[in-house]
Design a protein around this nucleic acid. Sequence first.
DNA 1: GTAAAAACATTGAATGTTCATTCATTAAAA
DNA 2: TTTTAATGAATGAACATTCAATGTTTTTAC
Lengths: 196, 196
Amino acid sequence: MKMILDKKKAIFDATLDLISKNGFHAAPMSLVAKNANVAAGTIYHYFDSKETLISELFKSQKCLIEGIISEADDSTKPFKDRFRQVYHGLYTYFIKNSKVFLFLEQYMSSPFMHKNSKEEFEAFFQPISDFLKKGLYNGSIREMNSRLSVTLFYGNISALVKLCLSGTMLIDITTTTNAFNTCWDGMKNPRQPDQN
Amino acid sequence: MKMILDKKKAIFDATLDLISKNGFHAAPMSLVAKNANVAAGTIYHYFDSKETLISELFKSQKCLIEGIISEADDSTKPFKDRFRQVYHGLYTYFIKNSKVFLFLEQYMSSPFMHKNSKEEFEAFFQPISDFLKKGLYNGSIREMNSRLSVTLFYGNISALVKLCLSGTMLIDITTTTNAFNTCWDGMKNPRQPDQN
DNA sequence: GTAAAAACATTGAATGTTCATTCATTAAAA
DNA sequence: TTTTAATGAATGAACATTCAATGTTTTTAC
């Protein structure tokens, strides 16, 4: 049983590694097998097809966002502080685990997404939605459709992460602070101007 | 001569159409040829390889952003109005020309990008950079690295466009207005609070 | 102006490669 | 002994690309 998990994990790891490097086309099953120290046929004991493998790799990240947010969020604080900590929690996680981030980017813009239900996608970002709704209900966040706020929030973070990972620019604390301020000043409730 | 342009255009159109539908994997040369009403071999008169074809399709959009911005921008107006018009110009163009938008998304997150110089990418967004710099220099835009502001600006628009195109949500004027306000309130210069 | 020649454009079947997937066989665990 | 796991060579499909043959346009020479 332990071995089974080891093998599955090795296959997941190799897949994540290859896809994050150069996209799906750079992850032929033969290479996945080789990098996972496994025979090509073995992968098919654990996964029906390449598509299944990738889709399950995504599913294995189901609770990722939830974990990061619950780690970063402290509901006793004022909402702006919570917002900042969640923002930085996500940003920091993606920088430290860039393979995961890059895989998610590939997956979300791939034909796999189109086939599988949008619900998968929806569920993945649910924790962000839940978090932002708290801010909406207590008047800290601008009134807008919840789907929109999630999209804009994640869009800001992912733009920052991509900029960092592109390696074409030195990212200092000023940059991340500016990105955060842009996000917060855009999303905060403009009718509650006492949140500096 | 006219015929040459027609054929090239037909090949570009077929490629754009297929890639925007389902990504690169959905655009085999045989299908491109068929949809362009051309023999497979003909494509290779005009393009060295598939990679060249796609790369040139991207290059053919070099002046896209510049065109949209110069169409939308009116430098006699207050900067907030210019910002709004450029924002809506880009948004509207991408909604109306969703194939172009979807192709760009695919291209920018593909291995093609990694191979070709980042300069291509840089140059593509230069007109946005130039526009935002005007706002920065006249004090309308928050002080931040130019690369970052471009990324955040385009990131906001592209998030909105993706949400619209996903078709899972009815996008009304309220939604686009909220997205715009989020963008502007985030990016405007907080030290110049008279820009309502 | 016309015919021959050269240059160019187009065709699509054939080629060779890359890959996902299968399966008969062997090894390990129950 | 039976069930489960693992192997990797073999299979076949999908694809990018080539090329010899054919059609079309342009140039040249008279």
